[in-house]
């Protein structure tokens, strides 16, 4: 077996809050395999987003971190933006409203790939075409507010992969989008990760969405890793009660209806 991209051992994260301490993650052991699509699922407060931030090196400075994260396949400590691209839930908060799209998408290519202004702009246009922004040439000179939420998320993804990262982290990246756009963005992430041989860490509260997009599934609850395994195994034969409960409370087209068939 090849070296994992990230080897997480005994990872704990604690925040100071109101004089007390809040444990956000406790004793996480996990290998992120190079080239895999790993979904992290959990409810609010499970620690799933803290885990994503910890891997990306984006924890707030007041966080107290224990344990280790090594990067055997990378061979060095990763640099956020270069080795790791991150896409958040709200593209409005990752895009600068007063900067043209071209400058924002090109920034990673200029800073981390050392491209000149012209070459970086070319790369930005290619990236916008890859994430299927219509008329990428015109989009380079446009501003974020001129695009829909789904298109803004495509632009944020283009910026996140601009420096050819080995790891793409999507933290609830489709949660604010409507169902049809969500499915399109999930398919786009899948395609980009496959084409560029990236590793994907897909953080979501939606177990069904996680199931459609991942090779392996890690279930977080109350700051701990409850179980991890091949996605199909975790869903069909969950080992832990918590995972069973998550699956049982999931609502899909086969769930029992709560109201009568016809109007009373």
């Amino acid at each position: 077996m090849s070296a994992p991209l990230a080897a997480v051992r005994g990872l704990s994260v604690t925040y100071r809050a109101y004089g007390g301490r809040h444990i956000a993650l406790q004793g996480i052991d996990l290998d992120l395999k190079a080239g895999e699509k790993l979904a992290i699922i959990g409810e609010s407060g499970s620690g799933k987003s803290t885990f994503a931030l910890a891997l990306a090196g984006l924890l707030p400075f007041e966080a107290i971190v224990g344990g280790t994260v090594d990067w055997p396949a990378l061979g060095h400590r990763p640099q956020a933006g270069k080795d790791i691209g991150v896409v958040f839930q709200d593209p409005g908060s990752s895009l600068n409203p007063v900067l043209r799209i071209g400058e924002q998408v090109a920034e990673g290519a200029r800073r981390h790939l050392g491209l000149g202004r012209h070459a970086a702009r070319e790369r930005a246009r290619d990236l916008l075409a890859r994430v299927r922004i219509p008329d990428p040439d015109a989009a380079l000179n446009a501003y974020p507010h001129q695009f829909s939420g789904g298109q803004r998320q495509r632009i944020a993804i283009a910026g996140a992969i601009a420096a050819r990262p080995s790891l793409l982290i999507a933290d609830e990246a489709t949660s604010a989008l409507d169902t049809v756009v969500q499915a399109e963005i999930a398919a786009l992430l899948d395609e980009l990760v496959r084409e560029d041989a990236m590793t994907l860490l897909f953080v979501t509260h939606d177990i069904a969405l996680a199931a459609t997009l991942s090779d392996r599934l890690a279930v977080f609850h109350d700051a701990r890793l409850v179980e991890i395994g091949a996605t199909a195994d975790v869903i069909r034969t969950p080992r832990e009660d918590y995972t069973r409960a998550l699956i049982a409370t999931h609502i899909d087209f086969t769930s029992p209806r709560l109201v009568g068939e016809v109007t009373p």
Partner: peptide, 26 residues
């Protein structure tokens, strides 16, 4: 229409797209 009918056999393009895009667990 009745929600069970629309989910089972959507007639509009929008309805079809919504049913198809709803992620399934199994």
């Amino acid at each position: 229409g009745p929600v069970t009918d629309v989910v089972a056999d959507p007639q509009s393009e929008t309805g079809k797209a919504l049913v198809a895009a709803t992620p399934r667990l199994f």
